[in-house]
Design a protein around this nucleic acid. Structure first.
Length: 424
RNA sequence: GCGCCCGUAGCUCAGCGGAUCAGAGUAUUGGCCUCCGAAGCCAAGGGUCGUGGGUUCGAAUCCCGCCGGGCGCGCCA
């Protein structure tokens, strides 16, 4: 299972979620390519304080307040989308004062919107798990009881603590607050227990590095339960945050969200393919500067088009030839003796190992680099040699090589969620 | 202050289970379309791999200190 995005339904998806979506989906595809059956899962933190703040914010807007007004909720969400939701809420007959109704409406609206963004991004999930369901089906209580029974907890200052320091954490963590409610840590652990119980033995979580402290905590909680879950469960891929640059300046403000650039903004600016390719073409833990002007360029400066162009070129050659590519499968290849041909074949032969390594390391960026190199070698070959030559044996062999290049480019791009156009 | 991550050509980044690893793209400069798409190709200049030690026959790659940047240090998620 690969769990990724898992955005709280409290606002539009931002660039960081975009990186997560691109990364998670590519990792899932990579694992599938290695023969695994992969479930893509999205976890909604739809319970807790953030959602309460969301409801308060929508209600305040519905009652005509603005973020700068005196009665605005202290930790309220300030983006314009709150106003849109509030407007739709009241227009649909919702009573401005009804906090619970506002909450339900807002969560539903934001989930729908996030889904639309993800779909436009070419990312689909198999399972959505709601944090709230872990409370309603009793799993949260069950985890707390099990933790207490494990003897790893203690009471202090009116709260219940877990000795996560026994498992490498730098301080013990609160399980049950002094007001009787649970910290997010409990449903998190309960959630991971369900992953294990559902039979997922290999679980990858894609998250931002700002959540890295969660890693030892969740693992510690799982260990304390003594369910036989391995110590390193689950795996994590942490990505650093994305800085968006446009015209040499950092872009911080999105009109909609107020304080951050959304996935939708990015897709509108540079297109889905460029966004996905860019976001997945860096090591996850490397700082990342997303240059909008570069991604937007429809010219040779843009690496996405470079690879897509190579694909389109091959298609063009095959079109002009007019034969069936499938008939090239058993073409004799003796005439492919040139230096560039050898390099190309060598590169093609490396594809399986590149994928295996990328899947092993959970590092899809190496696929992006591979494709860039393959495309480069093809362009180089294409410029140096003519494919559709008179001599039939040579022509057939070269066409077979081209067809192979096309296949690998298409397969590689598909793994990254980028289209492989036949013409462009 | 503590923890994790990062610091490689002007810029954006690969390489980091040690020994053609000093690279790619971009930017700059100079070439290539009467011929399969020039969104392409060919060539040149550009870095003591943050810094100081250590391990090693050999380190961008491993260890330690320091400097610089990011993130996290809540009975928030």
């Amino acid at each position: 299972m690969v769990e990724f995005v898992s955005a709280n339904p409290t606002g539009p998806l931002h660039v960081g979620h975009g990186r997560q979506a691109a990364l998670g989906d590519a990792i899932a595809a990579l694992l599938e390519a290695q023969g695994h059956t992969v479930t893509r899962e999205f976890y909604y933190n739809d319970a807790g304080a953030q959602i309460h703040n969301l409801a308060l914010s929508v209600r305040a807007r519905a009652q005509g307040l603005k973020p700068e007004d005196a009665g605005w909720p202290a930790d309220g969400y300030r983006g314009e989308y709150i106003e849109e939701i509030a407007r739709d809420f009241t227009a649909g007959g919702g009573k401005a004062a009804d906090l619970e109704a506002a909450r339900r409406f807002a969560v539903a609206a934001l989930r729908k919107e996030q889904d639309a963004d993800l779909q436009a991004f070419g990312v689909k999930f198999d399972v959505y798990t709601l944090e709230s369901s872990l409370y309603t089906d009793g799993r949260v209580d069950k985890v707390v009881k099990a933790l207490v029974a494990s003897g790893k907890t203690y009471e202090q200052e009116g709260a219940l603590w877990l000795r996560t320091t026994d498992y490498g954490d730098d301080k013990d963590r609160v399980v049950r607050k002094s007001d009787g409610s649970y910290t997010y840590f409990v449903p998190d652990v309960a959630y991971h227990v369900t992953k294990w119980e559902r039979g997922f033995r290999k679980v990858v979580n894609v998250q931002g590095t700002d959540h890295h402290s969660t890693v030892t905590r969740v693992r510690a909680g799982l260990q304390a339960l003594g369910l036989g879950i391995p110590a390193g469960y689950p795996d994590y891929v942490l990505h650093s945050l994305v800085k968006v640059v446009r015209g040499g300046e950092e872009v911080k403000i999105s009109k909609r969200a107020g304080s951050y650039v959304t996935v939708r903004d990015l897709v509108e600016w540079v297109g889905r393919d460029a966004v996905r390719f860019f976001l997945v073409s860096r090591r996850a833990d490397a700082d990342f500067v997303f240059d909008v002007d570069l991604a937007r360029a429809q010219t040779d400066e843009n690496p996405v088009y470079y690879v897509q162009y190579a694909h389109a070129r091959v298609c063009s050659v095959l079109r002009q030839w007019g034969g069936e590519a499938s008939s090239l499968g058993d073409a004799p290849l003796e005439s492919l003796a040139g230096e560039r041909e050898a390099a190309l074949m060598q590169r093609l032969a490396e594809f399986p190992e590149t994928l295996a390594a990328a899947a092993r390391e959970l590092a899809p960026h190496s696929v992006a680099f591979y494709l860039r190199e393959l495309a480069g070698e093809f362009h180089s070959y294409y410029n140096a040699e003519r494919i559709l030559v008179e001599d039939q044996a040579t022509r057939t062999a070269r066409l077979a090589l081209c067809a192979a290049v096309r296949q690998v480019l298409a397969n590689g791009l598909a793994l990254l969620g980028v289209r492989a156009p036949e013409r462009m």
